[in-house]
Structure formats: structure tokens, C-alpha cells
Design a protein around this nucleic acid. Sequence first.
DNA 1: ACAGAAGTGTAGCCAAGGCTACACCTTGCA
DNA 2: TGCAAGGTGTAGCCTTGGCTACACTTCTGT
Lengths: 142, 142
Amino acid sequence: MPEDTAPADLTTMRFSRAREAQAMAVLEDYAEMIDDLARQMGEARITDIAARMGVTHPTATKAVARLKREGLAVSRPYRGVFLTELGTELAARVRMRHRVVVDLLIAVGVPAETAEIDAEGLEHHVSEATLRAFEAYLAQRG
Amino acid sequence: MPEDTAPADLTTMRFSRAREAQAMAVLEDYAEMIDDLARQMGEARITDIAARMGVTHPTATKAVARLKREGLAVSRPYRGVFLTELGTELAARVRMRHRVVVDLLIAVGVPAETAEIDAEGLEHHVSEATLRAFEAYLAQRG
DNA sequence: ACAGAAGTGTAGCCAAGGCTACACCTTGCA
DNA sequence: TGCAAGGTGTAGCCTTGGCTACACTTCTGT
Ligand SMILES: [Mn+2]
Ligand SMILES: [Mn+2]
Ligand SMILES: [Mn+2]
Ligand SMILES: [Mn+2]
């Protein structure tokens, strides 16, 4: 039954990679969201971030604090949240990757709405190599 | 630029679904791992679980405690860990889904090793609907 | 101009999933 | 047979990402 039985340290590495990816997920989603709001509303307010993420405002405040700590955003009390150049770059990469993941899912037959939902979690675990493969697949099939 | 601007509550639902899936991820990985070890080694010991997951043994103990609390596993002090019927069913579903995800990735051109790595995180965010689409895609392309 | 509404900050709680340190139990082998 | 090594339990720490409750600031409309 155990057809492969991969070396134990390769298995270990897989799990450790998944944990790393997960640690980035919240940062990535908030960066993208703040960028979205800045485009759509002109600025990103804590309340709007929280509403869209489906969390309470203190939770959003904490996430923004982490973004600031990591040099991805800045903000001053009672003013909106703004991405740094680093944060903007992250948001751009995340948005692009999100789009590719959705497109790939749809291309292999996943219903569009389902693709949108699943992509929100999937995207954070798509490595550079996999992303390139997805892009190649999409390009090659027109 | 904001091509779609999906209704805010749909966006919210996406994030909330991703959080739900994430909350299951550890449970799923441990269940599958315990089942693997039971097959390969005859029993699942805490130390082996921890080594394969790449965590320390107290971390594995906590995870097993959660599995027990959720009715997925049983164990007695200094004896191995055993899945309940519920846990065994979960492990079977998780193993199958993992395999389908890896196969799908390879089918669209992701290198096999990369597919194995990324699948470990991706699998937990693949919904039933997406899984069915993946299976259909794999069946249809031989 | 100012009062009420809306937005924001912040304290403090919780659970999960990491960790180290240390105590205790089991097992294997000399 | 006993003891050293290895396996396990457990306490206690940390960070993250949820939450509620409450105080404070800003904005808005009369
Ligand atoms: Mn996401
Ligand atoms: Mn996204
Ligand atoms: Mn996994
Ligand atoms: Mn897996």
C-alpha cells in the first residue's frame, strides 16, 4: 500500500514548507485587501478592511500592526492605512498569483464561483515553480 | 483596474472559508500521518509522528490531544496512538484528496517534486466541488 | 457649533500550535 | 536482572489571530 514511502526528511520538509506558507497568508491577504481598498475607495480604513475580511476591527488592527512591523504598511492614529513600496510590491505579486490560480482552476473545469472561493486559501501554497507551470499551461491552451 | 469588485459579503465568505479550511489542516495531516505510520510501522508512536511532521514531541502530543478531543483518535499513556473509525475515514479521504491534488498538478505540468511539496498545503483548501472537477479532468485526459 | 453617529484604539480574554526544560516510564542489553 | 537510553508526559513560555467591552476621536448634519 505505501507506494512511495518518501524519505522521512523530505516529508518533514513538505510540512515545514506548508507551515511557512501559512505564516505568510494573513500578511498577503491584508496587503492585497489594503491595495484593493486604496484603489476602489481612495483609502483603506480599518473598519472597511475588517468588514471585507470578515473579522472585527481589533483583529484588523492587529494584522495591520504586524504589516507595519514587517515594513509593509504605515499608518497614523485615526488616519487610514497605506502600503509601503514593499507592501505594494507584495500586493501586486499576490493579486497576480491569485488571478492565475483562479484562471487555472477554471481552465481545468472548476466552476467559476468555486474557483474564486477555493483560490483564496490555495494561492498561499502555490510556489514560484508551480505558478510558472500554471502560466505555461494557460498560455499553451490559448 | 478593479475588474470585478465582487459584493463585499462574497469576499468575506471567501476569507472565512479559507480560515475554516485552515482550522482543519493540522487535524487532517496528523490523521493521515498516524494512518501512514500504522500501516508502515505497525503502530504510531508520538516520537515518530513528531519526527515526520518536523515538530517537537510536545507539539505532536498537543495535536494528538486535539484529535482525541474531536473523537478522531484514542491513546493511553506510553502506548501508541490509534485512529477511531471516524479518524480512519478522515485519513482515507485526506489521502485520496492528496493524491488527486498531486496528480492534477503533475497533469498541468508542475514538476513531480514541486507537486508533492505544494500539495501538502494546497490540499486543505480543495473543496468537494473542486476535487470532483480535478477527478473529471484527470479521467477525461486518460 | 455641537451632539450623536461612526470610526478607532486598546485592554484583556481565548485557543491553537510552536518551543524548551525537566520529570517520569519502558525497554533492551550487558 | 538491572540500569542506561530512549520514549513520553507535562508545565510553562511565546506568537498569532480570533473575540468582547469600553474609552476616546473624528465626522456630519441640523
Ligand atoms: Mn488568500
Ligand atoms: Mn487572494
Ligand atoms: Mn497537508
Ligand atoms: Mn497530505
